[in-house]
Simulated assay, not measured.
Amino acid sequence: MTGTRKSAVVVIDMINTYDHPDADRLVTSVREVLPAVRTTIGRARDSGTDVIYVNDNFGRWRSHHDELITAALAGQRADLVEPVLPDDDSLFVVKARHSIFYQTPLEYLLQENGIGHVVLCGQATEQCVLYSALDAHIRHFDVTVVRDAVAHIHADLAEAALRMMERNMGARLVNASDLRFPGAGGER
């Protein structure tokens, strides 16, 4: 369990152009989970808990987060991006592969900020969220997955991924409405 370990919400790949082969399937699920993603981010911000966006770079190797946000807002699904935009206090890490940790500075960022517990939301449950939960687990971070704030491409694989995260990685599964962040400390 998380005890008193300091938490951070990690928002995975929500800054998205939705310009890929699985976009139509993903968009349907994102629309369903968007309110819970907003609730998760809002509760974290209200409590002073760090919100860290970790996002694909869309193959734009010279881009920084403002350019990625601009590209997503110019895309055909800006309505799915605008409600969950980073604010001025949000942290932003660019990734190139599925895991939020793979060749990114995230682990160092978490350690420098004294964070031992990550609360994951975003997309896609059976890919980036699953691989990120595994990488967090093997790095000895406590993991919570907000089950109603993670979007999927394939519902059956997403359910299997959630079960794997809970059973094999000890991840805590919660709904956004049940999240509690006391101050900037660990989740209860």
Results as ranks from 00 to 15, higher is better:
Thr104Pro: 04
Ile115His: 05
Glu107Trp: 04
Tyr108Phe: 13
Val93Glu: 02
Ser99Asp: 06
Asp87Trp: 01
Ile115Gly: 07
Asp88Gln: 13
Ser90Cys: 13
Lys95Trp: 01
Val94Asp: 01
Pro86Glu: 02
Arg97His: 12
Ile100Gln: 09
Leu91Gly: 09
Glu112Ala: 14
Asp87Cys: 01
Ala96Pro: 04
Pro105Ser: 05
Leu110Phe: 05
Ile100Trp: 11
Leu106Val: 07
Asn113Gln: 15
Glu112Met: 11
Leu106Ile: 06
Ser99Val: 06
Tyr102Pro: 05
Pro86Tyr: 08
Asp87Asn: 11
Leu109Val: 15
Leu106Lys: 03
His98Val: 14
Leu91Cys: 05
Val93Tyr: 02
Tyr102Phe: 15
Glu107Lys: 02
Thr104Lys: 00
Gln111Met: 10
Asp88His: 13
Asn113Thr: 13
Pro105Cys: 05
Asn113Val: 08
Leu110Ser: 05
Ile100Asp: 06
Tyr108Ala: 14
Leu106Phe: 07
Glu107Arg: 03
Val94Tyr: 08
Leu109Arg: 03
Asp89Gly: 10
Gln103Phe: 02
Ile100Ser: 14
Gln103Cys: 13
Leu110Cys: 06
Val93Trp: 00
Phe101Met: 08
Leu110Ala: 09
Tyr108Lys: 12
Gln111Gly: 07
Gln111Ile: 13
Asp89Arg: 15
Asp89Thr: 14
Thr104Gly: 05
Lys95Thr: 00
Pro105Lys: 06
Glu112Leu: 13
Leu106Thr: 04
Asp88Leu: 10
Glu112Asp: 15
Leu110Thr: 10
Phe92Ser: 00
Ser90Leu: 06
Asp88Glu: 12
Tyr102Met: 10
Glu112Val: 15
Ala96Trp: 11
His98Met: 13
Val94Cys: 08
Ala96Asp: 09
Phe101Glu: 05
Ile100Asn: 08
Val94Asn: 05
Glu107Tyr: 09
Pro105Phe: 08
Val93Asn: 03
